[in-house]
């Protein structure tokens, strides 16, 4: 059974004189214990989609979906409050900038203790404070922080980015979520530290069977850590499949272009030769092309592309393109 099943989710930004479709009919599903990468370049709507899932977008944004199931339950039939309480119980998110999400005036220990679920505490109320403290320490151990004494007494600005990110993950774990959404968890980090965070997430996935939605703007960065990948471009669904399918036989011209342009995926390229690139740049939200938004940059574009393509499904490998590369392999 799917943990999460979202069909054709759209997010519209309501401005005074018009509305902008920032996320345009994107589908996403997650199984239990799955690690899925959500990949797309800056501004493709990854963070918006994640925020729509956990329901933290403000009222300027309108979210529609044809289907929004969580563990088989149809969340669209519930009131926003009911939906929110279900989601906030089972889904946790770490946000793009860890520093800005921690309260600068409170110590890490207090913030962690506060995040601990009251339901997990047993015993009398006078024992609760101590229990919370112990739970907080346990959480820090779980994310690989051994010197908890120092960490607990620190304020966020006294910690490095990588440590803050670990603390954020610890807080997310406090609720024992079934799904963890990690929005660019390693964006501001050095590669050696990035590896640590990815390994931590991988071990949580294996030991706790926690599903993870790993958001990144760089395809080659996440391929090692994911089972499946969903690719977005400029708010539209591009392609989804297993990591291997995406990496070795992408069906969509955009995914193909991403791989062609990467020196990592093209190790046989002569040193200092030019890389393949798509011309132009990502459209801005105020001037989106009609139909397939890749159109003006796409090498395979034809007349038909002024109408948005429908998603085709080939044994679980989904692609949204009128002229997919499927038959070229």
């Amino acid at each position: 059974m799917n943990l999460l099943d979202i069909r054709n989710l759209s997010i519209e930004l309501q401005t005074t004189n018009n509305s902008i479709l920032a996320v345009d009919h994107v589908s996403l599903s997650m199984k239990e214990g799955e690690v899925r990468g959500l990949v797309g370049e800056s501004g493709s709507g990854k963070s918006l989609l994640a925020q729509a899932i956990i329901g933290v977008l403000d009222e300027r944004w309108h979210v529609h979906a044809d289907r929004f199931h969580w563990r088989g339950k149809d969340l669209l039939r519930l009131s926003p409050e009911e939906r929110k309480s279900i989601i906030s119980q089972d889904v946790a998110m770490i946000f793009q900038e860890p520093m800005s999400c921690l309260d600068p005036t409170t110590t890490i220990g207090e913030q962690l203790a506060e995040a601990v679920d009251t339901e997990q505490l047993s015993g009398y109320f006078w024992q609760r404070n101590q229990q919370r403290k112990n739970a907080a320490i346990k959480l820090l151990h779980k994310v690989g922080i051994k010197h908890h004494d120092l960490c607990i007494k620190s304020y966020p600005h006294q910690l490095t980015e990588a440590l803050c990110q670990r603390v954020m993950i610890a807080m997310a774990l406090a609720k024992r979520p079934m799904l963890l959404i990690a929005d660019e968890p390693t964006a501001a980090m050095e590669t050696t530290n990035q590896g640590q965070i990815f390994r931590l997430l991988a071990s949580l996935n294996q030991l706790k069977n926690m599903s993870i939605l790993l958001i990144s703007h760089d395809l080659e960065n996440v391929t090692h850590w994911t089972n499946n990948i969903t690719v977005m471009y400029s708010g539209q669904f591009v392609e989804a499949g297993t990591t291997k399918q995406i990496f070795t036989e992408p069906y969509h011209p955009y995914t193909r272009a991403l791989l062609n342009s990467s020196p990592k995926a093209n190790i046989e390229l002569p040193v200092k030769s030019r890389l393949m690139t798509l011309p132009g740049s990502i459209p801005i939200l105020q001037h989106l092309p009609i139909g397939c938004r890749l159109g003006p940059r796409c090498p395979r574009a034809q007349q038909a592309c002024v109408k948005a393509p429908k998603v085709s499904n080939f044994h679980g490998h989904q692609v949204s393109c009128h002229f997919s590369l499927k038959d070229t392999y």
């Binding site: 370049e41 800056s42 395809l219 342009s261 020196p263 890389l275 393949m276 690139t277």
Partner: peptide, 11 residues
Amino acid sequence: LDPSLRSQMIN
């Protein structure tokens, strides 16, 4: 930089 910008910049 985003990957497609990065490859343009490298070129």
